[in-house]
């Protein structure tokens, strides 16, 4: 027995091979996580508390499922992207559902000049291009939409490996139906707009034992405006400015409108 104990590695002097294996970021050690992994704050304290490392993991694939496009992707990411857009590099949007609107992004603090949109219709070529984007050192963030593509586990695994070779916030937006399908992404979320705000369900993350959920509040707008369709509104509106090029009317001011800018949209 004593001889057997002698052959076991001492706890004081760990096996270098084992230490080498444990130093890999993709080795999952139960609840204990590599605290040295780099993260970037989501900008929402409630969400940061849920995320391991208190923020979005950098160089890891994040899988976000939504019921449909437009369910709060910019609201979720705008504080982080606003932070990233201050750095040298580019925010790459791969097959976005529509073209981003510069003034809208600017209102959320994102420098629209840092945005690049990449489109592809062929899935096999698209995957290679996405790997290139994830690995590129100039990518600050890569946001990819699955849309009509159907990424298999192996393909997502390829993206996850590519993300680890890069230095970007790597997020893929997928359909709601994929939420219950296995994914190699270390972090999986489900987001959905509800009346009380953007509901976020944490489906999977390293070291997580149970699902977590939070809601990011959306700034309230005013009560619904009654508009008579077909009415040209001239009686309700007033032209207040003209620079010779066009005319701009003021908005009916919402009660908590001023909060919206920092919080990332309406």
């Amino acid at each position: 027995m004593d001889k057997l104990l002698e052959t076991l590695p001492s706890t004081k002097t760990p096996n270098p091979v084992l230490a080498d294996v444990l130093s890999r970021k993709d080795v999952w050690r139960g609840q204990r996580l590599d605290t040295a992994a780099r993260v970037i704050s989501s900008g929402y304290p409630v969400l940061d508390q849920m995320l391991q490392g208190q923020g979005w993991p950098i160089a890891e694939l994040i899988d976000v499922t939504q019921p449909a496009n437009g369910h709060g992707e910019w609201h979720l990411l705008s504080p982080t992207l606003a932070n990233l857009s201050q750095k040298s590099g580019y925010i790459l949007l791969f097959n976005p559902p529509a073209m981003p609107y510069g003034p809208g992004l600017e209102q959320q603090g994102i420098d629209p000049r840092k945005i690049r949109v990449i489109k592809s219709t062929q899935q096999d070529v698209a995957l290679s291009a996405l790997v290139d984007m994830l690995q590129a050192q100039c990518s600050l963030a890569v946001l990819a939409w699955e849309n009509n593509f159907h990424w298999r586990y192996a393909q997502l695994r390829k993206l996850q490996i590519a993300a680890t070779h890069g230095d970007a916030l790597s997020i893929c937006f997928r359909k709601n139906t994929t939420a219950r399908v296995q994914s190699p992404a270390p972090l999986r979320l489900h987001t959905q707009l509800k009346a009380k705000g953007l509901e976020i369900e944490l489906l999977k993350q390293r070291g997580q034992t149970h699902q977590q959920q939070c809601t990011l509040a959306l700034p309230r707008l005013s009560a619904p405006v009654h508009v008579e369709l077909g009415n040209n509104l001239d009686s309700n509106t007033q032209v207040v400015g003209s620079n010779g090029l066009g005319k701009v009317l003021p908005f009916q001011r919402a009660s908590t409108q001023s909060e919206s800018t920092r919080q990332g949209g309406i």
Binding site: P96, P103, L105, Q107, Q108, G241, G244, P250, G265
Partner: peptide, 24 residues
């Protein structure tokens, strides 16, 4: 900006929210 300063002031510095996606 080129717009009349008084006119802007009369707008109470209202920020009109703009969408992140534009359909074209």
């Amino acid at each position: 900006t080129a717009i009349n300063q008084d006119t802007i002031n009369s707008c109470e510095n209202v920020t009109a929210p703009k969408p992140a996606w534009l359909l074209h």
